[in-house]
Write a protein that binds this DNA or RNA. Structure first.
Length: 622
RNA sequence: GCGCCCUUAGCUCAGUUGGAUAGAGCGUCGGACUACGAAUCCGAAGGCCAGAGGUUCAAAUCCUCUAGGGCGCGCCA
């Protein structure tokens, strides 16, 4: 585990949090942060500049020529000190040098408006490399989330049909967010909320009954709002086979519950199977129905009343859509409910919501929202931080959930919602027709069957969650450069083959001692070493920003750097396994470290890291 | 009409929570294989970061407005 990582001492936590970004404890960077912090404190104590009021940053600059880290302390201090930043920078450099005593820093210089560019001695970087292989599959884990319980709710697709591609994106995103949080030391629960209570599952049950009648020879027409899919026929058939035709003309009350239970169980089994195909499983499945059966919702409502958070009243009239007339007062809406009647309203507008939201309908039954806040409140008791991964069409729902948490005494920040934008499925650039009406929504299963689990998962992660994603089936199957999955996996396989080849060729073994690694002097080699060592930083950052796509991009960049280095070696004749046994041993150490870090990155994404690629079969292409 | 999200190279997108001369891939053009995987790489061309103001040492990033695109908007879940 990561516990043996040389953890830099953390003198004073509040100060430590102010300096740097707080979340970042990558050993090398933290080392620099510590030195700079001590240097600044000493300078302040000596009256050379004021004590730091705002945080400074230590960041790897975009341009590697600017050094390993850029420190902005002089610019931050310029105003309070009343002196030009470049002048301050000179003093800061001297203080840093005094602090370090030449042990770890190779160079310091003033640049641009007042940055202090800092370069560590190569041996400092190289000395950290053995840790990568020593920690192996745990390299990259951190404890930034130590002791924090996080509940990640995702998918939560209604149990009325198989998962489609859009669900798949949310599923993979949620799964990897959970994985990242796990890697950064949080105690993670993956949770699925099953909406098995409302009108939609009733509709499903009725659809099954219609198909049931059909199987018994009746001619039926599926109403517009029903579920016509083939799986509905399957469910009907299984009921017919097992229980016979006795429900054909029975009143609804006699079969509705039974049909619903059967249907939901069947669909949930389908969903579990869809999820298994993309390597996703959940720790907890929470049934909305059981929240009622166990009295959780009722108790929750009582609590709301006790806290005076609800009242009986009328909802303000809706904002009309452009071009549409505002319904006359008292006119019934689509559900035939007039607006004159009172409902039980939750005071969400006190906490940032636009209006108060109903928790009980005018007929006295609880709304969906009611059960959902009860559910979130319940989750909040079980975890310190909640994450919901929702489709973007639920964006309007976030404010009321946050309001609910806040009203109940938690913080609105205890919930973070990751909104997933829609997926445009294409095939060779042509949009794939998705018609909900015909039940022809392309199922996740079909896509996974065609392109494979690895490609499906990876492609879902090649875009920020809140941006729309084009998913091209042909591209995902293609074994070429424009397919990022292939590119990254090939890089891992290539490293595996090099190490394999070295063993066969009786080449020297990888060696991690300082003397051997010291021959890794090429800029490309040091660049790779630094990239490898930045991995824990990347993972922690992606976790705390809930941004799994960062890992996918990092993998592509890192493997690209390796391919470039490798091919360059081929061109110059500086072969990976070369005549020089020391260089060979050092390069193999680099290869092992890089292979490990790629494997770990892919593990976070839930994508396999193959030891070799299957041979390309072009004959398959028509 | 109101709210939220988006707008970066011809195309698809990154941009390290405000840092230095804005980066990749694809596409285009031109190059590199007696080889440990050329399933790769190198180079060139390509930009008013949608537009206008503001905040400060510093803005693609934060605030306001405008123009386009997406989503949502009464006791459906």
């Amino acid at each position: 585990m990561a516990s043996s990582t040389p953890t830099p001492e953390r003198a004073d936590p509040p100060l430590a949090r102010r300096c740097g970004r707080g979340y970042d404890r990558a050993p090398m960077r933290q080392h620099v942060v510590d030195i700079v912090r001590r240097a600044l404190a000493r300078g302040a104590a000596e009256g050379r500049w004021p004590a730091l009021a705002t945080p400074f940053t230590v960041d790897p600059p975009r341009d590697p020529r600017h050094g390993d880290f850029a420190v902005n302390a002089a610019m931050v201090l310029a105003k309070p000190a009343g002196r030009p930043p470049r002048e301050l920078a000179q003093g800061i450099i001297e203080a840093i040098q005094a602090e370090d005593g030449g042990r770890s820093i190779a160079s310091l210089e003033i640049a641009g408006p007042g940055f202090v560019n800092l370069k560590l001695r190569p041996e400092v970087w190289l000395a950290a490399l053995p840790e990568v292989v020593r920690q192996g599959a745990a390299f990259g884990r951190s404890e930034v989330g130590k002791g924090k319980r996080v509940n990640v709710e995702f998918v939560s697709a209604n149990p009325t049909g198989p998962m489609h591609v859009g669900h798949g994106r949310g599923a993979v995103t949620g799964d990897v967010v959970a994985s990242l949080l796990d890697w950064s030391g949080h105690a993670v629960t993956r949770e699925y909320y099953v909406n098995d209570h409302g009108a939609q599952v009733q509709t499903l049950a009725r659809s099954v009954h219609l198909r049931y009648q059909e199987l018994l020879g009746r001619t039926v027409t599926m109403p517009p709002k029903s579920y016509p899919g083939d799986y509905v026929i399957e469910i009907a058939r299984s009921i017919l086979v097992e229980l016979g035709p006795r429900f054909l003309d029975a009143p609804e009350a006699e079969w509705l519950d039974l049909f619903r239970e059967r249907a939901v169980a069947h669909v949930l089994a389908m969903i579990r199977s869809d999820l298994a195909a993309i390597r996703i499983s959940f720790d907890v499945w929470t049934s909305e129905r059981k929240l009622y059966d166990s009295g959780t919702v009722q108790r929750f409502l009582a609590e709301l009343e006790a806290k005076d958070l609800v009242y009986w009243g009328k909802l303000p009239p809706p904002k009309s859509k452009k071009g549409q007339p505002v319904p006359a007062a008292g006119a019934p809406n689509e559900e035939g409910i007039g607006e004159a009647e009172d409902l039980l309203l939750f005071r969400s507008s006190l906490h940032g919501d636009e209006v108060d939201r109903p928790v009980k309908k005018s007929d006295g039954t609880p709304t969906y929202f009611c059960a959902d806040i009860a559910y979130h409140w319940d989750k909040r008791q079980r975890a310190d931080q909640l994450v919901d991964v929702l489709g973007a069409d639920h964006g309007g729902y976030v404010a009321r959930l946050e309001a609910a948490l806040e009203a109940l005494g938690a913080s609105r920040h205890d919930l973070h919602v990751v909104l997933i934008q829609m997926v445009n499925l294409t095939r060779g650039g042509e949009a794939v027709k998705m018609s909900k009406r015909s039940g022809n929504v392309v199922s996740l299963q079909e896509v996974v069957d065609e392109v494979g689990c690895d490609a499906t998962r990876f492609i879902f992660l090649t875009r920020r969650a809140d941006a729309q994603l084009d998913f091209d089936i042909e591209l995902a199957k293609r074994q070429t450069l424009d397919n990022p999955v292939f590119y990254v996996q090939y890089g891992h396989a290539r490293l595996a083959r090099i190490l394999e080849k070295a063993a066969e060729a009786d080449a020297p073994e990888a060696r991690f001692d300082a003397e051997t690694l010291a021959v890794l002097t090429a800029p490309e080699e040091m660049d790779l070493v630094k990239r490898i060592l930045s991995f824990p930083d990347l993972v922690a950052g992606a976790a705390l920003a809930w941004e799994p796509h960062r890992v996918a991009f990092w993998l592509q960049e890192t493997i690209g750097a390796f391919h470039s280095y490798y091919t360059q070696g081929k061109r110059t004749g500086e072969r990976f396994i070369g005549a020089d046994p020391v260089k060979t041993a050092a390069r193999l150490a680099l290869a092992r470290s890089l292979k490990q870090v790629l494997a770990n990155g892919l593990a976070i994404l839930g994508v396999s890291a193959p030891e070799r690629m299957e041979s390309r079969d072009l004959a398959e292409d028509v």
